[in-house]
Computed example of a mutant assay.
Amino acid sequence: MDFKIEHTWDGFPVKHEPAFVRLNPGEGGVMVEVSAPFFNDPPAPLGEPGKPFNGLWDYEVMEVFFLNDVTEQYLEVELCPHRLEYFKPFTFNTLFGKEWRQPESDLWLIEK
């Protein structure tokens, strides 16, 4: 499944090449492939590459949301070019107050 991101979150056209996201079945999960312009704005956060980083949304990231329409839960996944990651499960009834946890996953950022 391929997605081309041509608009900002508030509906305006992007002022650069569109970002591409590809979802493919993976061994025991989903493979997320990202190809997007790199701006390095702001510069990399001080987190350790390959480790979870709370507050990653304040940096250059690609966000992917997976919805379970039966339980009304969703998983927010944030990937960044600096090899940091953020995973947070949510439900529609309790969006705030939970601490994040990193689930076991086969999600990888693929640089192109």
Rank of each mutant, 00 (worst) to 15 (best):
P43E: 03
N54S: 12
P42D: 11
W9N: 12
K4A: 08
K51M: 11
D58V: 00
D58N: 07
E85T: 14
S105V: 09
F3L: 10
D2T: 12
A36T: 06
S35G: 05
L56H: 02
G11N: 05
C80M: 11
F65K: 15
V21C: 11
E60T: 03
G29N: 07
E111F: 13
H7I: 07
K112H: 13
F20M: 12
K98A: 11
K15S: 12
E48Y: 11
D2A: 10
E85I: 12
N93Y: 06
L79I: 07
G11L: 06
E63N: 10
T91M: 01
K15I: 09
D10R: 09
Q102L: 14
N40H: 13
Y59F: 14
S35C: 10
I5E: 02
T71V: 07
V61N: 04
V32P: 08
P45V: 07
M1R: 10
R22Q: 11
R22F: 02
Y74V: 01
P49H: 09
F87R: 04
E48S: 13
L109R: 08
Q102Y: 07
V32D: 02
R101Q: 12
E48T: 15
F65A: 12
D2S: 13
E17C: 03
F87P: 00
Q102E: 14
E33G: 05
G47S: 14
Y86A: 01
P89M: 02
F87W: 13
L67Y: 15
N93A: 12
G47W: 09
V32W: 01
T94K: 13
N68W: 08
E63K: 11
V61W: 01
Y86L: 05
M1A: 07
Q73L: 01
K4T: 15
P25I: 09
K88M: 11
H82V: 04
L79Q: 14
P18L: 08
G26W: 00
A36D: 05
K4M: 09
F65Q: 14
V77F: 06
G55I: 02
K15R: 11
L23R: 03
N24V: 03
F39G: 03
W9I: 15
E76A: 00
G97E: 04
L109N: 09
F90N: 01
Q102M: 14
Q73K: 08
A44Y: 05
F20V: 02
F92S: 01
F66Y: 14
V30H: 03
G47C: 09
G55L: 04
E104I: 10
V70D: 14
N40I: 12
V34F: 02
T94W: 03
V32Q: 02
K15W: 07
L79W: 00
N54G: 10
K4W: 04
I110W: 10
L56E: 04
V61G: 00
H82I: 05
E76L: 00
L95C: 04
V77H: 00
T91D: 04
Y86W: 05
V61L: 01
G11Q: 07
L56Q: 03
L46P: 14
F66W: 12
Q73W: 06
P89N: 03
